[in-house]
């Protein structure tokens, strides 16, 4: 690594790095600073205080919703979505990696990613149509004679949020697991079978542990963004399915209390960051 190499590399990477610094690092800093301010109607009080944090963490009836309840619910929903997404995605990644001919793999990945890129809002709304009182699921169950009257509980529930988000993030979980599976040396698996291990035991003792880096990446790439979704809870969640992002959004919109919104954003980010960090540490022995 020569000196010229370093300066050339830095000169080239400077524009995107400075852009990320200006549009990401500095604004995130501004969020943290603002979270220590308070706002009284339209006047911003810039005396640093922990008042917002006190209100969020201890006040029982804040803004009609308990921030703590919403936070716990958001983490629970995001956790459930992550578990469902990754468990459901693994067999698909496995199939594409081990049973699809190499020249057809990119076509499969392309087909898997397409729904992910297409009109997010409309996709979430379609789940509302599917789960609705007179929606596709209820109609089908009625026609099959499995139920006598439509089930209202499908829509406007935390379960509806979990289903919709699991569907939305499916490709995000498949890709990292696929990449990890692709890296596994195939002779290793043959060796395991030659040594008398069955298919299932080979999977449990060789394939699964070796694919763990992909699973961990999939968990993080699903769990972290899920917390920040306010469209899905708003459209299909109902009052019991609202998440922390809805509260953040309303602070900047209807309630116009930006410092409180910033505090909620900081707390949400800190919770997600802490959980992700603990998860990474807990899975270290497989990913190292």
């Amino acid at each position: 690594m020569g000196h010229g190499e370093t300066s050339k590399g830095w000169a080239l990477i400077a524009p995107p790095a400075l852009y990320a610094l200006a549009l990401l690092a500095l604004p995130l800093g501004a969020v943290v600073v603002l979270s220590f301010f308070t706002q009284d109607f339209l006047t911003l009080d810039t005396t640093p205080t922990l008042e917002n944090y006190r209100i969020v963490l201890t006040d029982p009836g804040f803004a009609g919703q308990l921030p703590r309840t919403l936070l716990v619910r958001s983490v629970t929903i995001a956790g459930l979505v992550t578990v469902c997404t990754v468990l459901l995605a693994y067999p698909v990644a496995y199939y594409v990696s081990f049973h699809v001919a190499p020249e057809r793999k990119s076509l499969w990945l392309f087909l898997i990613t397409i729904p992910f890129w297409t009109s997010y809002l409309v996709r979430v709304f379609l789940w509302k149509v599917i789960l609705n009182f007179d929606g596709v699921v209820n109609r089908t169950l009625l026609n099959l004679g499995w139920i006598d009257e439509p089930i209202r509980a499908f829509l406007y529930s935390p379960a509806a949020v979990v289903i919709t988000l699991t569907h939305a993030f499916a490709p995000f979980a498949i890709l990292p697991i696929f990449v990890a599976l692709e890296k596994i040396d195939r002779p290793l698996l043959e060796a395991s079978r030659d040594l008398g291990e069955g298919t299932l035991r080979t999977f449990a003792r060789v394939t699964l542990p070796l694919s763990m880096p992909g699973v961990v990446a999939a968990v993080l790439i699903v769990f972290i963004p899920t917390i920040g979704d306010y469209v899905t809870p708003r459209l299909v969640g109902g009052p019991d399915g609202l998440m922390i992002a809805n509260l953040i959004q309303s602070q900047f919109g209807r309630l116009s209390n930006a410092p409180m919104g910033a505090t909620l954003a900081v707390i949400a980010m800190a919770s997600v960051g802490l959980i992700s960090l603990l998860f990474v540490l807990a899975t270290r022995r497989w990913t190292r």
Binding site: I13, A20, Y230, A245, F252, M269
Partner: peptide, 21 residues
Amino acid sequence: GMIMVPLVLPEIIVGVSVLIV
């Protein structure tokens, strides 16, 4: 890493932070 971070950052955080600035 810094350039790639927005890939996993919740979008609401990006929206809120740019809005504040």
